[in-house]
Design a protein around this nucleic acid. Structure first.
Lengths: 195, 195
DNA sequence: CAAGTGGCATACATTTCGTATGTGAAAGGA
DNA sequence: TCCTTTCACATACGAAATGTATGCCACTTG
């Protein structure tokens, strides 16, 4: 590979890393692009050349975090014994991951404001499709009632992410986590043919 | 009442009305306080005196919208024949109300970014408490399983608001609305002792 | 080796927020 | 009724941040 492209890729990675830290610590609005790029050993010139604008850099950061979350959830789900417990495990994994302050601030709080409805993001869409396909399988095997799979996936993911947001703001997340997971599983069981 | 206090109340109302429009149309970040106050026939002096800062004005707008939503949902819920269908009706009312572009932009998209976790807002908390008390009643009467009422209320509200966000971004909300309500009711039935 | 491309730095213009100061009208007492 | 005081709001100012336009130097390519 040429030296130019390698350096460019490195710089993009540096910018994303610095941006991820700044956005997580100060929030999107308060994060200064000047200090951001300086901390990466660059200037805003590199930023606007690579990502177009502040929003473009933010989108790149969100995509990175979302991909990590999706990969983790998929990995967790794959370890489950059956499809239904895999679905629940993925939901639980999402709730746990979203407790990370970084994820909370960037993806859950600032994300919708800057990028719009999360279900329309490419990254989240990937995850939704995954959940949707699991539900479709469960409907075929007669485990889950014949509901619209896309709607069901959206509702489950939304409930999980919202629960994480609530948990993170609560006084003692550690105590409430098991209760929340229990209630989440109960809620999801509404889709089962027989509870 | 004195002339001073009346004028002050009028000006506050003017500012909130103008802000509500500007925030809805341009989003929080892009809304200029200069043009905002000018459209209300005032200057930023009035704004900073009455609301402290841009965020304070935004909080006042959110509180107004949230109060309207809560009142509407409560009204809808009261018309229901029994407590359980009242709970479902309130959820449906929330979904419908959140389809309003104004509510969507201000409360669902920008709200969390500017004000933090919605479940911690005074206005939303009122609504959550209402839902929580209904669920507690349903648990006492043996209709709903003995789950943590606060967690359950949070999950239901979160799912409803998230569904509205998804619906609003979808290609044809009118077609998907009944499917979404059906799936929401199914999901909620997971809390029932027997479905 | 020479010419050209382009990734990035620099300088500039614009916009906006928040504060500090000033002013005019209403409230209250004599 | 008149004078003093208060305060709601307007005005002026300073600071900071974003996006763009321009320039430079290293790397690529023929």
């Amino acid at each position: 590979m040429s030296t130019r492209l390698m350096k460019m890729a490195e710089n993009r990675e540096k910018l994303i890393a610095a941006a991820r830290k700044a956005f997580a610590e100060q929030g999107y609005a308060s994060a200064s692009m000047d200090s951001l790029t300086a901390q990466a050993g660059l200037t805003r010139g590199a930023l606007y050349h690579n990502f177009g604008d502040k929003r473009g850099l933010f989108a790149a950061v969100v995509d990175q975090i979302d991909s990590e979350m999706a990969e983790y959830a998929k990995c967790i789900g794959a370890k489950a014994s059956d499809a239904w417990s895999g679905l629940l495990a993925e939901g639980a994994a999402y709730i746990e991951k979203a407790l990370d302050p970084e994820v909370r601030r960037i993806v859950l709080l600032d994300g919708p404001s800057v990028l719009g409805d999360p279900t329309q993001w490419p990254s989240q869409n990937k995850c939704l499709q995954s959940t949707k396909s699991i539900i479709e399988k469960l409907i075929e095997t007669g485990t889950v009632k014949p509901v619209d799979a896309e709607v069901a996936a959206m509702l489950l993911n939304g409930a999980a992410l919202n629960a994480a947001l609530w948990l993170a703001s609560s006084a003692n997340p550690q105590v409430l986590l098991p209760k929340t997971l229990e209630a989440f599983n109960l809620l999801a069981s509404g889709f089962l043919v027989k509870g």
